[in-house]
Design a protein around this nucleic acid. Structure first.
Lengths: 157, 157
DNA sequence: TATTTATACAGCATTTTATTCTTTATTTTT
DNA sequence: AAAAATAAAGAATAAAATGCTGTATAAATA
């Protein structure tokens, strides 16, 4: 695919908002028939523009009410240790994101836990067991104004 | 719904991984027929456990290669100003998350941009126009070890 | 310029899935 | 123990996905 045209971008925008829409309804919105829309979606999937389709859950309703960010600095920085650290961090079910960053920390983590108590438990019984841990800073989410996975594609047009 | 049973949790886990699976294939995996699975999914949607279904895009392939986190401190803290700040921040297409946090910052943002240059442009031409801005700290993502929206539900069982 | 080739899409046919309904078994309540 | 509620199987129907054919338009080639 040379590049994405207007129709492709529109399809991606719609599927980011609701991936359960029928091909037909997308086709109608774009003033086309189902087949070209169907074929374009398959192409976007095949060529990797679309990584997949997922259900988004209501964390709070499920009992996981607390989001926490952690800035972590390590004391050692050997390659083998960094890799080990990432592997272990990724295995914790509480951790949903783990980014190596430049700036005032080495790593930034995003966690989802039941509540503050569960977070404290995570720190005591899991995190602090990791060696070479340096400075650890917690950012406890009080409220969330925006939290989406939707990438704004208007910039591409 | 009193609460989620084992089958509900399993369904949620599967739909978090791939929401395009057919009812039939989920039913087969769980050793049931399609109708109960179908009804359970509808119930989970209706009662708000499932917020929606979305396509996950390949950011890099689309040309948005850089993720950045920003810790922001405000100088003023009147209610009306905080609200205005959040509203304006949420309107920036670059910002995909905006959390009010306790800790060393007032707000933590997550942004997705083309590259560092685009990030600099965001700061100069958008962010710094906001009044009452205090300390701003950037955490530039170098690499990402884990980045998922999938909530681990094994904790609930 | 004429001719071929590739691309995109409409429209229809077919297969597969989603959805609804009925019946039966099981559990819960009284 | 009887009645009511719940859960699921199985079949029937509606809707959607998927594939195919033909046509128009654009791009490439001679």
């Amino acid at each position: 695919m040379a590049n994405l045209d207007t129709v492709d971008i529109k399809i991606l925008e719609l599927l980011q908002q609701n991936s359960n829409r029928t091909t037909k309804s997308i086709a109608e919105e774009l003033g086309m028939t189902t087949s070209p829309i169907f074929e374009r979606i398959k192409k976007l999937e095949k060529e990797g523009y679309i990584k997949g389709y997922v259900a988004v859950l209501n964390q709070k309703k499920i009992g996981l009410k607390q989001t926490v960010f952690m800035g972590i600095t390590l004391q050692g920085h050997t390659r083998s240790y960094l890799e080990k650290f990432v592997t272990q961090i990724n295995n914790f079910p509480e951790v949903i994101e783990c980014h190596r960053v430049s700036g005032n920390f080495d790593y930034l983590l995003k966690l989802v836990v039941e509540d503050i108590e569960a977070y404290e438990h995570f720190i005591i019984s899991k995190l602090t067991l990791l060696p070479y841990l340096g400075n650890v800073q917690s950012l406890i989410t009080l409220s969330t104004g925006k939290e989406t996975n939707e990438i704004n594609l208007s910039r591409l047009q």
